[in-house]
């Protein structure tokens, strides 16, 4: 475990040095993410001009939900996103060989190697937005609700990574996974809306089959309605199951990897 932590510290140090080489891009990316945050919040502000409630939630609740989503997205952009971008390229070019021969888990190395230092500032901004949303929330929030909420958001970021890996791993067989990657980014839109707007069956699919609602919407319910064993158990159980399935899928794919131009 300590060896992996030391390795991750090296990843961080290397990523920060490299990102400062491209200073203009560093700032462009920060502005881009801020623009994304503004667009997401503006979308719901416009919607709430025409209704008091959306999926049982008031604007204050939806604002917390949206900021939670922005935080999960910022964690993903900072920790995983660059690595997800490079993975299909490594597989197609055969560069994966260099990572398979290292004495550490290839999944760990390839998923966490490139820390997006420029998005790290956005992670701070997204955290600030969530803090603001929580502070302006008119009802008192018990500490236990808040702690579970933050923990489940972190779990949501890992679930986001897990789900994306399911769409990336087929590159071992398909060569081009652009269609699958586009499909993944389209589907994540389903998790950006309050869960109660969906019909019963759509909601079930989005909870158990393709659990996008577990990333942000269910953690927000835990915050507003209090932690319940069923909600927390379901979220952690399904997330854990999907993670194990993803690791199994990764190992299965590695067995079919035939190196360069596979």
């Amino acid at each position: 475990m300590m060896r992996y932590l030391r390795l991750y510290r090296q990843f961080l140090s290397f990523s920060f040095s490299r990102s400062l080489e491209y200073r203009l891009d560093f700032w462009f990316r920060i502005v881009m993410d801020c623009m994304f945050y503004a667009v997401e919040i503006a979308f719901f502000m416009v919607i709430y001009r025409h209704t008091e409630l959306l999926g049982d939630w008031t604007f204050d609740q939806t604002f917390v939900f949206v900021c939670g989503f922005l935080l999960v997205d910022a964690i993903h952009m900072t920790v995983f996103s660059n690595n997800m971008w490079w993975l299909p390229i490594y597989v197609n070019k055969g560069d994966l060989d260099y990572y398979l021969v290292r004495p550490v888990s290839s999944l760990f190395f390839l998923s966490l190697r490139d820390f997006a230092a420029n998005s790290f500032l956005n992670l701070i901004i997204a955290s600030g937005l969530l803090t603001w949303a929580l502070l302006r929330y008119p009802e008192p929030i018990p500490a236990s609700n808040l702690l579970w909420y933050l923990f489940l958001l972190l779990n949501g970021a890992i679930l986001h990574y897990t789900m994306q890996m399911f769409f990336l791993i087929p590159v071992f067989w398909l060569h081009s996974n652009r269609g699958l990657t586009n499909a993944f980014f389209s589907t994540t839109k389903l998790g950006e809306r309050p869960d109660k707007i969906y019909s019963k069956w759509t909601r079930r699919v989005l909870l158990f089959v393709f659990p996008l609602l577990l990333m942000v919407a269910i953690p927000a319910r835990v915050l507003f309605e209090g932690p319940s064993l069923s909600m927390i158990g379901m979220t952690l159980g399904i997330s854990g199951l999907f993670f194990l399935l993803m690791v199994g899928f990764w190992n299965f794919a590695l067995k079919h990897y035939s190196s360069a131009s596979s």
């Binding site: 081009s176 269609g179 586009n182 389209s186 839109k189 389903l190 969906y198 759509t202």
Partner: peptide
């Protein structure tokens, strides 16, 4: 790249209709 072409469209449209 026909699979990519159709997959992107069909999935995006289904998601858009649901949302």
């Amino acid at each position: 790249y026909r699979v990519d072409f159709w997959l992107t469209m069909v999935v995006s449209l289904i998601v858009q209709v649901i949302v």
